[in-house]
């Protein structure tokens, strides 16, 4: 029995600078895993390796293995495009597609993948927006521009967009760091709902957030994974001194 997603000896570099060193992690299905650590510790790079988005940046490279249901997504015969349909992503800044309506923002993943049937698209858009807890707010203005929504709504729109292609893993890169507390609370609430259908890996700067929403937490420092365990244990009884010093606010 293996985890839904796991990494083996995952290392990543920008040019000659190594930013991730031999990360081993397992993510179980239908859980929320949080990754915390000071700025520049490699946590964003890490989740960008999980859907092979890291390699899209100039001079970026990764080595090691990332196993999705036991299959190495870095194997030479694997198409990164196909992987990204299975492993979706939500970014730090809400980034709805410009000039596209709310409907099209959610539908575009399927549309460009060749789904033409209007009924299927409408159904998917409604289901995704409901999952992202945005449906009630936008159901009467699906033809408005996605960028006309508020920041918090835009971020939920981006979540709906990612969910529309039905990924099995959802990566979230500091999804609430650009949002106000109320929008943040909504998205946190949403995540506990979402983990019934999708496995979430979230990077966060906010330790309280990690403590509130995650089942497991990993602490990263200088490109290394220092500690990974049950969230309740990591925050109450950290095994590593560096973790303890970080979560008690003595550095970072």
């Amino acid at each position: 029995m293996y985890s839904l997603l796991s990494t083996q000896n995952l290392s990543a570099s920008f040019g000659s600078t190594q930013v991730l060193k031999n990360i081993q992690m397992d993510f179980d299905e239908f859980t929320v895993s949080a990754i915390i650590g000071p700025s520049g510790c490699g946590k964003s790079t890490f989740i960008r390796c999980l859907n092979r988005l890291h390699e899209e940046v100039a001079e970026a490279s990764a080595t090691g293995k990332v196993l999705l249901q036991g299959h190495d997504i870095y194997a030479s015969d694997v198409d990164p495009v196909a992987i990204r349909r299975k492993i979706g992503m939500v970014f730090q800044k809400p980034n709805p597609f410009p000039s596209l309506s709310i409907f099209d923002n959610v539908a575009i993943g399927l549309k460009l993948a060749g789904v033409r049937r209007g009924a299927i698209l409408r159904e998917t858009v409604e289901r995704s927006l409901k999952l992202a807890a945005l449906w009630e707010e936008v159901k009467d203005k699906l033809n408005s521009q996605g960028t006309s929504l508020s920041g918090g709504q835009q971020q939920r729109l981006c979540i709906a967009r990612a969910l529309a292609v039905e990924p099995s893993v959802l990566l979230m890169d500091e999804p609430t760091s650009a949002l106000d507390p109320i929008s943040t609370a909504k998205i946190e609430e949403l995540m506990t709902e979402l983990k019934k259908t999708v496995t979430i890996v979230i990077v966060t700067h906010n330790m309280q957030q990690a403590a509130r929403i995650s089942d497991k937490t990993a602490f990263f420092l200088l490109g290394e994974m220092i500690e990974y365990g049950e969230t309740s244990e990591l925050f109450t009884a950290p095994k590593d001194q560096r973790t303890e010093r970080y979560i008690t606010g003595r550095f970072g």
Binding site: L53, V81, R84, R85, M89, F91, N95, I108, L112
Partner: peptide
């Protein structure tokens, strides 16, 4: 003028 993260959002949807 279109920020890089918009392109990444498209790629992250599994689009070529």
């Amino acid at each position: 003028m279109i920020p890089e993260h918009i392109r990444e959002a498209g790629l992250a949807l599994g689009l070529p």
